[in-house]
Structure formats: C-alpha cells, structure tokens
Design a protein around this nucleic acid. Structure first.
Length: 261
DNA sequence: CTCCATGTTTAGAA
DNA sequence: CTTCTAAACATGGA
C-alpha cells in the first residue's frame, strides 16, 4: 500500500543500495506505466548515468541523475522496489528493470500497472506540474490549521487530497482519524481548535511510527487500527466491531465508539 | 463467476 | 470555485 510511509521506506532502501553505480541499460516491460516519456527517451536519459540522491514528495519517489534531471516513480495501488546484487537474484517479473554495469539491478515492480514512471527537471517542477500540496510530514501545526480554513468537505477526503497535503492515502487516513478520535465524515469546517490539534498530533505520530516500522503492518503498535482494517475487525482499544462506510468513493473503516459523528 | 482492492484522473452534476 | 460521485485504468485475490 504505497502511501507516504511505504514510499519513504522505498526511498531509504534505494539510498542504501542503488546510488553511485553506472546504469548500463533499462528494460521496460510495461510501457503503459510511462507518462510523458517513452522507453527510448527513458533509456537515453538513464544510460551511462548514476543515481546521486533520492527524495520523496508525498507518494512520489524522485531519484537524481548525476548529469541533472530526476527519475520519478509512483507506485499506484501496488508497487515496490527490489534491488539485486547479482543477476541470479533478479525478480522474474518486473515492470521496469534498471541494470547497473556491476551486474546489480533495481527492479520497479507494479503488477497492477497503475503506477507511473516519468522524468522531471526537479522535485519542485514535479510538485508544480502535479499541483501537489506540501508533504504531510513537512507541515507545521500552523500550516496545518491554515490548510483547514475555507474547506467544506469531509475530513477524510481533505487528508487524502494530494493537492492540499501530499502523502496520505486511504489506509493511513483511517489510522490518523482513528488515533485522533474523529469520524471520517466530519466536515473540516466543523472541527474545533482542539480537534485540529489532535488531528495534527495523530498525523505526525501515525506517519512517523509507520516510517519507523518500515510500513510493515505486522510491526505496527498494538493500538493501531491498520491490522484490524477488514471484515470482522475489532477496535484495538475497546473491542467494538469496526464499521466500514463508503465515502468519497472509498471505504473508510472506523470505530463507532471512539469516532462519533 | 462476481466483487473488491492501498491511487489518480476525468467528466458531469450539484 | 469547491465538492461529490462514478467510471476508467490493470490485475490479483477472496
């Protein structure tokens, strides 16, 4: 589930393994993932280059090339990176494979092909082109409050709107609202100062904790909703059966006792 | 077989 | 202009 914590984990993974190695070639198995570029153009841009650094904006991972320019990876609903030191360790199936001249490789795997691979001049350019709001973990409390003014929609849709703030998806918006004790369908405008403060606190705590746990659902704290977020799931704090509702075209899971309308 | 899924974009309505 | 809904995208899993 590639939301902010997952993509942050991929970023650290890439930084620890795939920097400073000469790119020999790339193999694009799923051209549909390329947006605004072609396999040929991507090959020309990457071949002979090295990755110098990586950064993240919301759910986007950006990788800097040594001669300027950035590779942009978005993972859609499913997707991950896998680095292999040796040829024998390469995954059988990858939508895009980057092969380094020392025989190692970095595979972009997105079996449902809803991701995106593209190039950009800079992280700022990407944020501008995609109209992305600030990264959710870069927000100050004051900025967070400011973003809430003049908003009429539901709080869940607000948290998930990448143009308002970037990085929170369906799963972590549920977790943040659960930890803050706020119902997903409350209107942003109706939240009082205390609730906004709780929400901000929960946002930071949830995202930072998830990053620390490498976005692994099995390693989340015992009071997290995430592992219970399915049919038959129970509130980790009071045992009440969780409820699911459709809102904003997505399913929201919540505890009817801890998150009142 | 049907329905649903962690994301984004687009179209159309209110 | 904002917000909501539905549909589309591609594919695997229940």
């Amino acid at each position: 589930m590639p939301e902010l914590p997952d993509v942050e984990t991929y970023k650290r993974y890439l930084q620890a393994r795939a920097l400073h190695q000469r790119i020999e070639r790339i193999q694009v198995q799923a051209p549909a993932l390329l947006k605004g570029t072609t396999a040929q153009a991507l090959g020309r841009a990457l071949k002979g280059r090295t990755f110098e650094s990586a950064c993240r904006h919301g759910k986007y991972l950006l990788v800097e090339l040594d001669h300027g320019g950035w590779l942009v990876l978005h993972f859609g609903m499913t997707g991950e990176l896998r680095y292999a030191r040796r040829r024998e360790e390469r995954p059988g199936q990858s939508e895009c494979l980057i092969v380094f001249d020392n025989g190692s490789s970095l595979a972009y795997i997105a079996p449902r092909k809803l991701g995106r691979i593209t190039l950009t001049d800079s992280p700022q350019t990407l944020a501008h082109d995609r109209k992305l709001g600030p990264d959710a973990l870069d927000l100050s409390g004051a900025q967070f409050r400011e973003l809430a003014t003049h908003r009429r929609g539901t709080v869940k849709a607000w948290l998930m709107n990448q143009q308002i703030m970037s990085g929170i998806g369906n799963v972590y918006s549920d977790e943040i609202l659960f930890q803050a004790g706020i119902h997903p369908q409350r209107s942003v405008a109706a939240l009082d100062d205390d609730e906004l403060k709780q929400l901000y606190k929960a946002l930071r705590a949830v995202l930072n904790t998830a990053v620390k746990k490498k976005a692994d659902p099995e390693k989340m704290p015992a009071d997290f909703l995430l592992p219970q977020r399915h049919k038959g799931g129970r509130c980790p704090k009071c045992g009440t059966a969780l409820r699911a509702i459709k809102t904003g075209g997505r399913s929201a899971w919540y505890c009817p006792r801890h998150q009142r309308t």
